[in-house]
């Protein structure tokens, strides 16, 4: 059992939904990332998703694109991100860390080397946005699994039942449902259509389902928490980071406030129905 599976079974017993914040590693600057990770755990995060900056983040909306650009101005590399996880693990050995990024930096390092270094650093799962199961079937998935890392894959509103089955068979930890057709941080999401799709996914896999893309506030998080096993929030946090600029104290405080508000809303909602 991975740290990720452990968390999901523990939360399931308690009837709770996981809260997964996403930040881009190295944004607003590399010194802040580990501080933010600890603050987010304190504010109620169950799993941390750490974005690996990439020059051409094709699936991201403008907010996360700019976060990548800020991080890259500080020359944050994949190795640099792994170092941040090592530093995080000095104080926190419990909270799972999932890396989310694009394939090219991983391939430049070498998939096997990456898997081994990530595992040593204390990473638990990896989402590679532009590596669908068709392309992951070779070296990628087995390299991660050999190092005990969970390969996490996306499921989209456009995914057919055949694809959902194929994706679930290759994934472990959880599957990540992209709650709208669009990029990260896009407009608003239709909770009813998310609910319908999740019912379909659940009929095809027993794996926990995280839902992300377009969850901006506590109210939406609470709605999604009723039907999902985890709620992922990214662009809303990164907007705060962007607006706070150099005021790092205020930044940590505001990120924590948004998350604890979401935590309370999610727990309130799930306590009623689960």
């Amino acid at each position: 059992m991975s740290r990720i599976s452990d968390i999901f079974s523990a939360l399931q017993t308690q009837g709770k939904t996981a809260l997964i914040p996403f930040i881009t590693a190295g944004d607003p600057d590399p010194q802040m990332t580990v501080t933010l990770m600890h603050a987010m755990v304190k504010a109620g995060a169950d799993i941390i998703e750490l974005g690996v900056p990439f020059s051409d983040p094709m699936a991201e909306g403008p907010v996360i694109q700019r976060a990548c650009e800020r991080a890259l101005r500080h020359h944050v590399s994949l190795r640099g991100v792994l170092d941040m996880v090592i530093r995080f693990r000095l104080q926190d050995t419990i909270t799972p860390v999932v890396l989310m990024g694009y394939l090219n930096p991983v391939e430049v390092m070498g998939v096997t080397t990456f898997a081994s270094l990530a595992s040593q650093a204390g990473v638990d799962g990896v989402i590679t946005v532009d590596c669908p199961p068709e392309e992951a079937g070779g070296e990628y998935t087995s390299a991660l699994q050999n190092e005990g890392l969970d390969p996490i894959f996306l499921i989209a509103p456009t995914s057919t039942p055949e694809r959902i089955t194929m994706i679930s068979a290759m994934a472990s930890g959880f599957v990540y449902y992209v709650s709208l057709k669009g990029v990260t941080g896009a407009a608003s999401l239709d909770v009813q259509s998310v609910e319908n799709k999740l019912a379909q996914i659940r009929s095809l896999t027993s794996m926990p389902i995280g839902v992300g893309f377009g969850i901006k506030d506590a109210a939406t998080a609470a709605c999604i928490a009723r039907v999902a096993d985890a709620v992922v929030v990214g662009s809303a946090l990164i907007s705060i980071i962007e607006k706070a600029g150099d005021d790092h104290g205020r930044l940590v405080e505001q990120v924590s406030d948004l998350l604890s508000g979401m935590r309370a809303a999610i727990d309130g909602e799930t306590a009623d129905i689960k």
Binding site: D130, P132, E135, T158, S159
Partner: peptide, 11 residues
């Protein structure tokens, strides 16, 4: 190949 996010696989 086809290295895109899942949303584009169906289209």
């Amino acid at each position: 190949g086809r290295f895109v996010a899942e949303t584009l696989m169906a289209p």
